[in-house]
Design a protein around this nucleic acid. Structure first.
Lengths: 146, 146
DNA sequence: GGCATATAGTTGTTTATGCAACTACTCAAA
DNA sequence: TTTGAGTAGTTGCATAAACAACTATATGCC
């Protein structure tokens, strides 16, 4: 028994993620404006390495919710930009660990500041308790479907 | 003065739209499983034509929050699939109106049913009033950034 | 040890996106 | 009536995504 109805197109934006598209575009624009020459997708990989350097590509797949080919090519491009380096694991030769370079580490502070500012632009006029509810709903949706 | 802080990565999912990615993937999977051979992006264009046939490409840009090249190519592909047809406007020869074909119209009922079911899968365990709050927050975010 | 199965990662193909540069058409003002 | 600004749409290029097919390595069972 459905607990919600998709009526009158009011949930179109919800389903198509117009808000998150808008956030990604603004983040991209703000990074470019700040002289940070990476894509938002590359940012999402670096983000997890800043928290936890040396993740394997598979762990990056799980963390970023991207498939293996996507991570292969994102890491390819980040390597070309000299921001990360693949290191074959000694224990398990199937695994590449991905490590930040000095250059990659240096990006963290500035880039996270831009991300933080972008989020604040996005949330102007939204009470914090409503943001929390929204986050919870999106987390449940993600858990339902992932 | 920032009204929210981007702390401890808790808003990573919010910013990167993991929930809407999950919805889009599930919708794609459900359509394929139901024998509907279109992409979710093509669905988003057809959706607006079902509500309002004959929109111009520019109007489709506004409705779907995509840029002009994206709509050009989505309409290209929908035309190849014989689901829509471009018709040059008589009043203003710059404008293409996009009309559904009989085949395009026939997809509506089944496809909207699949979309509705997908949404219900996504929202299992979420009280309706929380969905409403989430929608409102996302609408404000979109309006802040669009 | 050897084989089946699973896991990590890569490659190929099609579709989609963002941005910039371009063509074609419209409209209004000199 | 011409010209110049604005609008609608297309094309080119780089990046990214989904899916399937592939290689290489690891592991567990006989």
């Amino acid at each position: 028994m459905p607990n919600n109805q998709f009526k009158k197109g009011e949930l179109y934006s919800f389903m198509t993620g117009k808000a998150s598209t808008a956030i990604a575009r603004r983040l991209q624009k703000n990074m470019k404006h700040g002289g940070i020459e990476i894509t938002v997708e590359q940012w999402s990989v670096l983000y997890h390495l800043w928290k936890n350097d040396g993740l394997s590509q598979q762990e990056l797949c799980n963390a970023t919710f991207r498939d293996k080919p996507s991570i292969t090519r994102l890491v390819d491009n980040l390597e070309k930009l000299k921001l990360v380096k693949r290191v074959a694991s000694k224990n398990d030769r199937r695994i590449n660990q991905v490590f930040l370079t000095e250059q990659g580490r240096k990006l963290e502070e500035e880039t996270m500041m831009v991300a933080n500012n972008t989020l604040n632009e996005a949330l102007i006029g939204v009470p914090a308790d409503r943001v929390d509810i929204c986050k919870e709903v999106l987390q449940i949706v993600y858990d339902n479907l992932k």
